[in-house]
Design a binder for these strands. Structure first.
Lengths: 112, 112
DNA sequence: TCAATAGTTCGGAAGTATGGGACTATTGAA
DNA sequence: TTCAATAGTCCCATACTTCCGAACTATTGA
């Protein structure tokens, strides 16, 4: 297993990023990671405890392959961090706009 | 068939928008529509002539249901327009950020 | 060495995309 | 009115992805 395959910054695709963030669970994972200033284990980053481990593992694989998170093995856990700087370098403003939209949507939903 | 069902502005979801734009073909359709200042027929908006009509129709259905385009019947054709103002009202800056990222990606690809 | 914990991988069920062909609706000509 | 042409949609079969449970691997600690 060793280390995971992460795409280079230049290999991050817009479609990949959008597809990864189109899933509400994955978007929440990213939001959670950013709130905790990065570095959470997979289960700690799960937005909802009923999700099966295998499903969660799959979500993290998608996020890794999209270039959104960097995973490194640390003992028995995996440390996950958002590659915010890489995303910003490749697609300036994109991640911020999506996260702000996510907040806007949550607020509108709460107000309704 | 009459008119199509378009979601209200407040019913546009972030996941729906991201999922719709995660497909490169649909993203190109949106870019094409915006370049032509809206209003293109379905086949005219197709980025590539080899796509089957049924597939194209399906892409437009996804875009409509996501709230990204407004389709109205005009004679034998369908007029498609991007709901830029609605998207901007619901998710300020989002569409612009995605489109700019799309341009950035195309330029980086061309430079490589 | 054995148990516990954190993730990954495998396999089946359910949902989703693609494209071919048939269908509907409008237009224009005979 | 009737017929052909054109623009899209609907239906179906095939192929691919997603989700979850179960089995597996790797690390830690007793």
């Amino acid at each position: 297993m060793a280390q995971f395959v992460h795409p280079a910054t230049k290999d991050i695709t817009l479609s990949g990023v959008l597809a990864a963030l189109a899933d509400p669970i994955r978007l929440q994972i990213i939001r959670g990671l950013l709130q905790e200033s990065g570095c959470l284990s997979c289960t700690a980053a799960s937005p909802c405890p009923t999700i099966a481990k295998s499903t969660l593992s799959n979500h993290f694989r998608v996020l890794r392959e999209a270039g959104l998170v960097q995973t490194s093995k640390k003992g028995v856990e995996h440390q996950n961090a958002v590659r915010a700087a890489d995303i910003e370098a490749r697609f300036p403003g994109l991640l911020m706009a999506i996260l702000q939209s996510s907040v806007a949507e949550a607020e509108a939903g709460a107000a309704a």
